[in-house]
Design a protein around this nucleic acid. Structure first.
Lengths: 226, 226
DNA sequence: TATGAAAATTCTGCATACAAAATGCAAAAG
DNA sequence: CTTTTGCATTTTGTATGCAGAATTTTCATA
């Protein structure tokens, strides 16, 4: 599944990108879930959704199966699919695991990343900082996610960034809602400052530590929103 | 997706289990991949596979999408699906992540598991030990996997056992092939003895440590088989 | 008015049909 | 003899149709 979040007009070199409808639908439905257009517990009517999106049931069903495997959707035999509802404990559990994964990523990234890759994270960080200053919450939020993903990417461990993005995607909706207050936001931003410093110093221990703390605090920041 | 590996005749209480064809196919195809009936790189012809299994293309395609999300299958636009081929680095990467997850599980399990749950792991362990003594490699292998899964289960952290089973399933085929020599097998068995002792003592640190070592060694045990 | 059975409707699950793309092959051109 | 081009075949991608399960509605009865 192609995971280009930035949705740029694909590079003009190389073979042109063929996209299948079911593939596009996966992305579309995922976004609808994350952005709350499809709320947890809501039934996903095949014919209705299909009509709404202008596709037939076949590719739609395929996309739903894909999302079911991703854990965003629950399949109920003979009764179709519903958007999965996560309990507080579920979210907490996911954050525990995500914490462990990102701690690992922090350690690995400092060893394996190239200077260019670290520079790219720095760039994302600076952009995010700008959004923080400008109080542009939406873009801040997206860049935040991207930074965490990128730290996993630069470990060059596919399995790791795969697992991370899976969990992150399950948590997106909750974190998207969790519009924390100003002081909490400031704390998160401060943690990110620590992160980028540790990464640029290639101090794996430190980066791992900050990431761990960051994710523990993430729970404090979202738990009220559930 | 129902994940009963033991395939017992479902309990007779409660509502009868409705199974959809696409769901059954997921399990079936997964087994075919793990057991090598479908080899890495092999194209999964829809009509042919469908005929072979006696189903139409529709539920088959749905199952394939599900497996693609699981990472066992790769979708190539307009060209169907192929069984994913994992490189040595891929396997190593997965084991690194699995190590991290199981270390976490080791720590959590000692805190959260009930005495009954620990007893169940002990039972599985004793069974596995018997298979080792009887040189029953296939059953040993299955029980081995089950023990690792169970240790994650008894953390009562759904996300954790979810991620673990995902990685484990990707690695199954490779470990299935990796028929290690007698001395390596003995070492693995010895590690398992350590594990069960640590678990029964509820010594999280120790269990975590053994599990970590066990998975590091797992790499040594399979790397030649790739 | 409340209750419950039965009919009607809606929806899912699966198979089939059709369109579009890819693959293979053979003939023509160089 | 090699390469290229066009055609036939195969295979994927999407839509539609039909059977059966689930849900809702209707309507008779207490």
């Amino acid at each position: 599944m192609s995971e280009t979040l930035s949705e740029l007009p694909a590079s003009n070199s190389g073979p042109i990108q063929r996209t299948a409808l079911h593939d596009t639908l996966v992305t579309r439905l995922r976004d609808m879930i994350i952005e709350g257009e499809l709320t947890p517990g809501a039934r996903m009517h095949e014919s209705q959704l299909g009509e709404q999106l202008g596709v037939s049931r076949t590719p739609l069903r395929e996309a739903i199966k894909f999302l079911a495997s991703e854990g965003l959707v629950e399949l109920i035999p003979s009764r179709g699919a519903i958007v999965k509802r996560f309990s507080g404990k579920d979210v907490h559990d996911m954050l525990i695991v995500l914490k462990s994964l990102e701690e690992l990523a922090g350690n690995l990234a400092c060893e394996t990343a190239t200077d260019e890759e670290i520079a790219k994270v720095r760039q994302l960080h600076d952009e995010m900082r700008a959004c923080y200053d400008a109080k542009d919450r939406l873009r801040y939020y997206k860049l935040n996610q991207e930074i965490h993903s990128e730290i996993c990417q630069i470990t060059h461990n596919q399995a790791l960034s795969n697992m991370q993005s899976l969990l992150q995607s399950r948590l997106k909706r909750i974190r998207f809602i969790g519009h924390e207050g100003v002081e909490k936001w400031a704390a998160a931003m401060a943690e990110h400052e620590e992160m980028i410093v540790a990464l640029e110093a290639r101090d794996g221990k430190a980066l791992s530590k900050v990431l761990g703390r960051h994710l523990l605090n993430a729970w404090k920041r979202v738990r009220d929103a559930i």
